[in-house]
Computed example of a mutant assay.
Amino acid sequence: MTAKGLDHDGFIVREGSLSLVADEFAPVVDAARGRISEAFDRTRLHSAYLYGSVPRGTAVPGRSDLDLLLALRGGPSAADRADAAALETALDAGFAQINGVGVLLVGTDTLLSELERYDLGWMLACLCTPLLGEDLGEQLPRYRPSSLLARETNGDLGAALVRWRGLAAAATTDGQRRKLNRAVARRIVRTGFTLVMPRWSGWTSDLMESAEVFGGYYPEWAARMRLAAGIAVAPTADLAGLGLLLDELAPWLAAEYTAVHGEKTPRPASGSG
C-alpha cells in the first residue's frame, strides 16, 4: 500500500482483515460467525462480512460497536429482519467489549447491481472483511477516490437531514439519543471527508483524520467538523452538539456537496434492504 490508503496504481486498498482483529474482540467475532450460521442457513445467506473499527484493529473495548453486513440470496424478508434483530441483541448483551451491534441486510443482486456499484458495491469491495461464504468483492471493480464515488456514497445528505430532525425530536431515552448522536455525527464526518476526497486523492476511515483533512480545505468549518468527529467517537445522550451540527454545518455541507459533486442517483422507494 502507498500513502493515503491507495495502492501503487491509485486504487483504494481494501481495509480491514481478520488478522487485525484485536485479541479482546476475537471472541466476539467468533460468536458472530457461529450465531450467523445458526440463524441463517445457506438457502438464505450467501456471505457475511465485518466492517468498521473491529476488522481495522482500531476498536476500543467498551466503546466501539460491531458492524456486520449479510449478503442474502434474495431481498430481506420480515423473518430475515427479525433474525438479524435477535442477532444484534444477543451479541450486544453477551459481550461487554462492544457497545452496540448493527446488522445490515442486503440482497446479492442489489450489491452487484449497476445502481449500487459506487455505493453498497464499493462498501463491500473496499470496507468489508469476509467472514463467511464466497467473497462478492471479487466480482466488483477496483475504485479510485473520484467525484463519482463521492456523489454516489454521500450525495443525499439533504434528504437525511429531514429524517434526522424527526428522529431527534422523537428520541426519548438516553440509549436512543446516544445511538442517534453516533450515527448522525459519523455520517456528517464521512460526508465532509468525501466532499474533499478527490482533491486529497486518498481514502481513510479514521474519523478524526477525516475531520482534519476536511478542515484543511474548509478551515472556516474545521471546528464544527472536529465537534462532529468528537461526538462520533465518544457519543453521549446530550443532543445539544447534534443540534448545532443539524442547524449549521449539515445544511451548508449538503448544499456544498451538491454544488461540487451533484446529487446521488435516486433509489427505488423500497430501498436496498
Rank of each mutant, 00 (worst) to 15 (best):
L115C: 04
I12P: 00
A96H: 13
A3T: 15
G215V: 11
F193P: 01
R199I: 14
P266D: 12
A234G: 13
A183P: 00
A232V: 11
D206F: 10
A96S: 14
R81P: 03
T204N: 05
R56N: 09
F193R: 08
W164R: 15
V101E: 02
L120Y: 05
G100H: 04
R178G: 07
G166E: 10
R33N: 03
G215K: 05
L112D: 05
Q139M: 13
G75T: 10
R151K: 12
A39S: 15
E88V: 05
P145D: 04
R187T: 14
G102C: 13
T258M: 10
S205A: 15
A234M: 15
P55L: 05
R199A: 15
T172A: 13
E209F: 14
L180F: 06
T258Q: 12
L161Q: 12
H261S: 07
I36L: 05
V196F: 01
A185P: 01
D67A: 06
D67N: 14
D92F: 12
L105R: 03
A223Q: 13
P61K: 08
T173I: 09
W122P: 00
L111F: 01
G202N: 09
E38F: 10
G155Y: 05
G75H: 11
G107P: 02
A150D: 03
H46Q: 09
A237S: 13
S272N: 15
E263F: 04
R199Y: 13
A78H: 14
D119M: 05
V213Q: 01
L246N: 01
L105E: 02
V260Y: 00
Y143R: 08
R182L: 11
R14Q: 15
T191E: 08
A232F: 07
L161K: 02
E152R: 03
P219N: 08
E212T: 13
A250Y: 02
S77M: 04
N99H: 06
